[in-house]
C-alpha cells in the first residue's frame, strides 16, 4: 500500500514535470513580452522582478529557476498582469472554487447515481428511457446555455436567489448546479452501464438462487462493482470541478480560480499561467490517486499490495 502510494506520487511528479515543460514552452512561444501589458507595475519593480526570475537569462536557465523557486520557497512567481504574487491569487480564489466544486459534486452524485440505479433496475422500460434522455440533455446542453436559462427561469422567479454574485450562502446553489449538471449526467450513464454489466454476471444469478430480495441483490451484490466506472470518472472530474470553471464563474460572477487561468492565457501572464496549471495538475494527480485507492477498497481483486492469483 505504502509502496503503491509512493510509486504513484513519484509518477505524479513526472506528470507535473511534463505539464510544466509543456506550459513553459507554450508560454514562451506566446506572442508579446511579459510586462508589456503592465499598467500598475513601476519600472523599478519590473527590473527587480526580471532579475529575480531570471527573465533576461537564457531559456534553459529560466526553465530551471521557476521550479527551484517553487521547491525552495513555495514561490509561484508574480502575476504580471495583476501585479500580485500568484500565491495570493490562488489562496484567495481556490477556497471559493473549492466550495463551489464541493457543491457541484454533491449535486452530481446526489442526482446522477440514483438516476443511474433506477434506470438500471428498470432497464428498457419507459422510466429508463426517459431518465436516460434527460441525462443526454444534461450532456448535450452546454453550461453556457444552462447558466443563462437558469438565471432567466429560476433566479428571476424565486426570492432569495440572486441572478449573480457571491456572498450569501444561497448564492452558490445555481452555479454549483450548473457546474455539477454535466457530471451528474455522465454519472447517471456510467452508473447505469456499470450496474447493467454487473447484473448480467453469473454471481447475480447465484444471489437470486439464495433467495435474496431484489433490493438486497442490488445493494449488497451489484452496487459495489457497478460503481467502479463512476469512481474512476469522478477522480479527474472532481479535480476539474474544484479548480473552477471560467464559464460558470463568468456567468454567475463568482470570484473563483478558473477565470485567472483563461485571463492569464489571454494576457500572456506566464507565471500565473504556469502556477495555476501546475496547481490544477497537482489536484488531478491527487484526485486520481484518491479514486485509485477507492477502487482498491471496492474491488478486492485490484486491492493494492496483494498479488492477484
Amino acid at each position: 500500500m505504502f509502496r503503491f502510494i509512493l510509486g504513484r506520487l513519484l509518477q505524479g511528479l513526472l506528470v507535473l514535470l511534463a505539464l510544466y515543460t509543456i506550459t513553459f514552452f507554450l508560454a514562451k512561444a506566446m506572442p508579446g513580452e511579459p510586462f508589456t501589458t503592465e499598467k500598475n507595475v513601476s519600472e523599478t519593480t519590473k527590473q527587480y522582478l526580471r532579475k529575480l526570475y531570471g527573465l533576461e537569462k537564457p531559456l534553459w536557465q529560466q526553465y530551471i529557476i521557476y521550479p527551484s523557486k517553487i521547491i525552495s520557497a513555495g514561490d509561484f512567481g508574480v502575476s504580471t498582469s495583476k501585479g500580485r504574487p500568484v500565491n495570493d491569487i490562488i489562496s484567495q480564489s481556490f477556497p471559493v472554487s473549492l466550495v463551489l466544486g464541493l457543491g457541484a459534486l454533491t449535486f452530481a452524485i446526489g442526482i446522477g447515481v440514483p438516476i443511474g440505479i433506477i434506470s438500471a433496475v428498470r432497464r428498457n422500460s419507459w422510466v429508463d428511457w426517459s431518465l436516460m434522455a434527460v441525462a443526454m440533455v444534461g450532456i448535450c446542453v452546454p453550461a453556457f446555455t444552462v447558466g443563462p436559462l437558469l438565471q432567466i427561469l429560476v433566479a428571476a422567479n424565486i426570492p432569495g436567489l440572486k441572478v449573480a454574485g457571491w456572498g450569501s450562502p444561497l448564492d452558490f446553489l445555481l452555479p454549483a448546479f450548473t457546474l455539477g449538471l454535466v457530471s451528474a449526467a455522465y454519472l447517471a450513464r456510467l452508473t447505469r452501464g456499470g450496474l447493467l454489466e454487473i447484473l448480467s454476471q453469473d454471481f447475480i444469478r447465484t444471489a437470486h438462487s439464495k433467495g435474496l430480495s431484489p433490493t438486497r441483490v442490488i445493494l449488497k451484490h451489484a452496487l459495489r462493482g457497478g460503481l467502479l466506472p463512476s469512481v474512476a470518472y469522478l477522480g479527474p472530474a472532481f479535480a476539474a470541478m474544484i479548480s473552477g470553471s471560467f464559464i460558470v464563474e463568468t456567468i454567475f460572477q463568482v470570484p473563483g480560480m478558473g477565470q485567472h487561468f483563461v485571463n492569464a492565457a489571454i494576457a500572456r501572464d506566464e507565471f500565473l499561467l504556469m502556477g495555476v496549471a501546475l496547481f490544477f495538475g497537482f489536484l488531478i494527480i491527487l484526485m486520481n490517486l484518491a479514486s485509485d485507492i477507492l477502487t482498491g477498497l471496492l474491488d478486492p481483486r485490484v486491492r493494492i499490495g496483494k498479488e492477484a492469483s
Binding site: 505524479g12 505539464l19 476539474a240 487561468f261 483563461v262 492565457a265 496549471a277 488531478i284 486520481n288
Partner: peptide
C-alpha cells in the same frame, strides 16, 4: 493526467 482543456487553451 495533464489537464486537457488547460493545454488546449494555451496552445490555442
Amino acid at each position: 493526467s495533464i489537464p486537457f482543456l488547460v493545454v488546449v487553451i494555451v496552445l490555442q
